[in-house]
């Protein structure tokens, strides 16, 4: 049920992010979402893309260290309280969120997507389903 996030190691110095986006642009990779966690010396780029396999291959060939991480893509109504409702469900199921980031969903204007990295994915999926909150799969993301 989960999405595959691509996580990439980058040194925190001018131009390293550009080198990576250059590789993706050249290979026509379409990014759906991106977030960066950084320290003084290095950063971790986390992204959701249209074609996970192609992205992993071109990054490896270009010498980038990367890994694939399972994350949840949750559909959230684009209205006040949308995120609050989802977090309430996760907290109720004792699911810890390691990190999250959001993006707006393509042509659909009525909802956004939130990417969650959680510790107990199965519990999160079950709790969200019980409340009728939709979790998207890779196909849906690819077709956005």
């Amino acid at each position: 049920m989960s999405l595959k996030q691509i996580s990439v190691f980058l040194e925190n110095k001018p131009g390293t992010l550009l080198t990576m986006t250059g590789v993706l642009a050249q290979n026509h990779i379409d990014m759906r979402a991106l977030s960066i966690a950084e320290t003084k010396d290095f950063g971790i780029v986390r992204m959701i893309v249209d074609d996970v396999y192609a992205t992993a291959t071109v990054l490896k060939d270009a010498g980038f260290i990367h890994s694939l991480t399972p994350v949840l893509g949750v559909v959230i109504p684009d209205e006040p309280g949308g995120l609050d409702q989802v977090l309430r469900v996760l907290a109720g199921a004792q699911v810890n969120v390691e990190y999250m980031y959001a993006f707006l969903g393509g042509k659909n204007v009525d909802h956004a997507y939130m990417i969650f990295r959680v510790q107990n994915e199965a519990a999160a999926v079950a709790a969200l389903a019980a409340k009728g909150i939709r979790v998207v799969d890779q196909d849906e993301i690819s077709q956005l």
Partner: peptide, 15 residues
Amino acid sequence: EMTPEMFTDNLGEVE
């Protein structure tokens, strides 16, 4: 040098 084995998406873990 960072290696594939040592890398994870979790910043806290890398630190």
